[in-house]
Write a protein that binds this DNA or RNA. Structure first.
Lengths: 122, 122
DNA sequence: CTTACAGTTAAACAATCTTGCAATTGTTTA
DNA sequence: TAAACAATTGCAAGATTGTTTAACTGTAAG
């Protein structure tokens, strides 16, 4: 990552552009796209509410729908978006499809975001 | 944090609705809105690139613009969005306006998101 | 096979967001 | 005060997103 504090001139950019930076650039480029896609998926109150339910354990679609008191297709759509970004994973069991957060990393991201918000608002 | 593996019944909902949950509901309601707003602000590749620059230290608008090789008004707009959600803060110093990440919490959120993406893509 | 239940998908419409360019504000220096 | 530089704002065009209703698929039970 760039070191902004050093090498700050009055005229030029403070962000040096050496080999290391250039090498990292491609990585960051792809990572930014991916990270932004995840953040975008989390960036909706309704989807986030849904994720908070999954934070407590896996759920099937109709359970989520009744917990959030919303029509089932709406929930299914949101889950589709979340699954498209691999924020949640699903598993069919008989008639039911169970959804869960994709991994611990996502779980932590959600928890951190909401906790930050809660601290702010407290 | 929730334990996903345990507490799953065959018939009933896995998400219990006891007093504790109900009490937390109002808090979560507001927190979701706020957290989603933050995530939404982070959910754009261009804004995230900008934030990665700030991750390394404060910068003025024209520095950011030249580092990202983009027109200054575009950067200013993005900063406005980010500041609107209190993801960044600004400080005027003479002709220049310096921007920085709002706090450590935001910094960690950004770093975690991008690191997750990098690991995924590695 | 048919009924009922669980979930997904499609299409249309509204709403929101992003961007680019031009004009404007604010700040310093001559 | 005028000129130059730094940054912000306004506005229109275009793209993305979210929501809703209805139709469709898949699965188990009668």
């Amino acid at each position: 990552m760039a070191n902004l504090d050093s090498g700050m001139n009055d005229d030029g950019p403070s962000c040096s552009e050496n080999d290391h930076e250039v090498r990292d650039f491609a990585v960051n480029e792809a990572s930014c796209e991916r990270a932004a896609a995840i953040f975008r998926a989390l960036g909706d109150p309704q989807r986030l509410r849904l994720l908070l339910i999954l934070e407590a354990g896996q759920c099937c679609v109709s359970e989520i729908a009744s917990a959030l008191n919303e029509p089932l297709p709406a929930i299914s759509q949101r889950l589709r978006v979340l699954k498209g970004e691999r924020v949640v994973k699903s598993r069919r069991e008989g008639k039911h499809v169970f959804y869960a957060l994709a991994d611990e990393h996502i779980s932590r991201l959600v928890a951190n975001g909401v906790m930050h918000a809660m601290e702010e608002l407290s």
